[in-house]
Design a protein around this nucleic acid. Structure first.
Lengths: 339, 339
DNA sequence: TGAATTCTCGGAAACGCTTTCGGAAATAAA
DNA sequence: TTTATTTCCGAAAGCGTTTCCGAGAATTCA
């Protein structure tokens, strides 16, 4: 089976290649009949236009680059899947690269994608991304970019973020309202914006309810189960286990629960635990984990829409879209019966 | 900042574009000094070769397409990450597409990747993939393809598989040796090769130990936690809970454990459970889940190596590489103390 | 019926690179 | 010094498209 080209069709039909090209691109003048004829024979021959050649002569590639810090956790997997769903429906293809939480790899990924002439980029920066001038340059050079979470406020590009402050506030307040006296927050890596935002929400709730500083604490854990376990081990060693934990994400919460149980603490009877960025595990573990679900699907779709807007308009807006979630209260943070 | 081309360098240095091209491609005759000069000024100018143009004039794109059925579970995420690691080190870039367990989407993905001139494909077919003639054609047309798991034996291409029979045999034998009298296997979707292989291993162990057919059963569940839960609900309704379950994967096992616990069964005291294709959750849940770990990293790397071999040799071999795993025995399947 | 428009379409350049061919310059052999 | 080799490089075609320009044919308008 040959790879037919536009030229093959042209010679076969005894027309010029430009006419054939016109038949495929609506924007030029061509008689309806010739167009139909060309399209039909092209189809019969099994002709597939060569996207590489197309990319070379046009500017656009109909490819969108997506860079995520990882996709071993469900969160970014869901984002990528939703992104793909939307962008395919708009005629784009997405190329996914993951940075392995490595800043250098992230820049390489972005570079690779730009070299491959993607029409735009959706970037969820890796934890340590501090090199903002790099992104500033890219934007100034006219590369359409939309950022997803974890991003520095100052970047002049559309940003899709989750309202971490608000929902972390709710989660904390939920614990306060149940009269857990001492509440610790296990936070993420400190250079992440999500970390500081969730801390902010946590503190806000503490202030609102006038909780004494003796009764809460913020401890940097990380984002992995392992890191949650380590913190709990330290606390147990220091005989410093509070009545409740609010964790930066589900993995840390699950690690914490594991270590607590191993050491004879019952959850939630002795210690309550709340997670964040709900995963499918929340419903599967015992006790079921209270957590905050992020609307990954909507967030991804919005990111896609904004990117297409930037691409089409040619100018980068600077709007920040803030999303809200759902707080699923489950057994891990409720002593009595669930309503 | 301009996008420099080979031509810009040529005019600046007053050489021909072919000379500049030669400087970048080792295979041609060029004086060492001119080459160094060109390379240096190119670097100074910040020249980046245009991969699209390169693809058009050469045959190869240095891109590898990867198609997986999903990456919401850790398994394929790990595979993709390892694949990326290896292929990047070999100078390739990978383009990942997921088929959402949808056969039609899978064919679209493959088509898109081929159109985009990937040099080769690594495909983990989706559950329902029955359309083998499609792949046969692709291979006959000379597309380098390596298959990963789940694949029909008859396809004449390199295949990377896990030794499901053997390890499912071990898992089952482990349960038998502990004198669980009745053992049920919760299997996957029936058209999957992994499903039938794990069933085969299960049966083999039963036969070896001469277990009566009254004492074991194979029930089709699926691959999701939800499906594991549903099966357990049915069994409970029929008062048909065995002493032990061997599940097709961890998610089904976790779903099963959840439902069992909800209905008052203790794991492993009343019912033992073993999973497969170990996930990070195995160690985090209570009781910790016995499971079989697949060497995803090695499998992915091997797939990459074989693909490069096919690409370079130009001929598709037909070897099947079978991998072995590790059986991590944990609390969920052991009544007494773990050694 | 002749002039002015409007439709269609072919020719050709362009996108940025690779690669073959052949010739000039440099080197080695005679 | 002349001839034979080798080394290096420029010219140009080619990869498969798009798209500008302009010309002939068809149509409309006086």
């Amino acid at each position: 089976m040959k790879h037919y080209t536009i030229k093959d069709i042209a010679t076969k039909l005894n027309v010029s290649i430009s006419t054939v090209s016109r038949a495929f691109n609506d924007k030029y003048d061509i008689k309806k009949e010739t167009k139909d004829l060309i399209l039909k024979t092209a189809k019969d021959m099994g002709y597939i236009p060569n996207p590489i050649a197309k990319k070379l002569s046009q500017k656009r590639s109909l490819n969108i680059g997506v860079v995520v810090p990882e996709f071993i956790n469900e969160y970014y997997s869901e984002i990528v899947i939703a992104l793909q769903e939307f962008l395919i429906s708009e005629g784009y293809q997405i190329l996914v690269m993951q940075s392995d939480e490595n800043e250098e790899q992230e820049m390489k990924n972005v570079q690779t994608l730009i070299k491959n002439m993607v029409d735009g980029l959706i970037i969820a920066p890796t934890a340590g991304t501090t090199n903002m001038t790099y992104y500033l340059n890219l934007i100034n050079e006219g590369n359409p970019i939309v950022f997803l979470n974890r991003i520095n406020e100052s970047i002049p590009a559309p940003k899709i973020v989750f309202n971490n402050v608000k929902w972390s506030f709710f989660a904390t307040e939920h614990l306060i309202r149940q009269h857990y006296e001492t509440i610790y927050h296990l936070s993420g890596y400190k250079n992440l914006s999500v970390t500081s935002e969730r801390i902010e929400g946590f503190k806000k709730a503490m202030n609102k309810h006038k909780i004494s500083k003796d009764n809460y604490k913020i401890i940097e854990a990380g984002l992995l189960a392992q890191e949650g376990m380590e913190v709990i081990e330290d606390l147990i060693f220091n005989h410093d286990i509070p009545n409740a934990f609010f964790c930066v994400n589900d993995m840390v919460a699950l690690g914490a629960i594991k270590k607590l149980k191993e050491n004879g603490y019952r959850v939630p009877e002795d210690v309550a635990v709340v997670g964040f960025t709900e995963t499918r595990m929340a419903e599967l573990v015992t006790p079921q984990l209270s957590s905050i679900k992020q609307p990954t699907h909507d967030m991804a779709k919005k990111a896609g829409e904004l990117l297409l807007k930037v691409i089409k308009s040619g100018t980068s807006s600077e709007e920040t879209i803030i999303f809200n979630g759902v707080f699923n209260i489950r057994k891990s943070s409720v002593k009595g019966d669930l309503i």
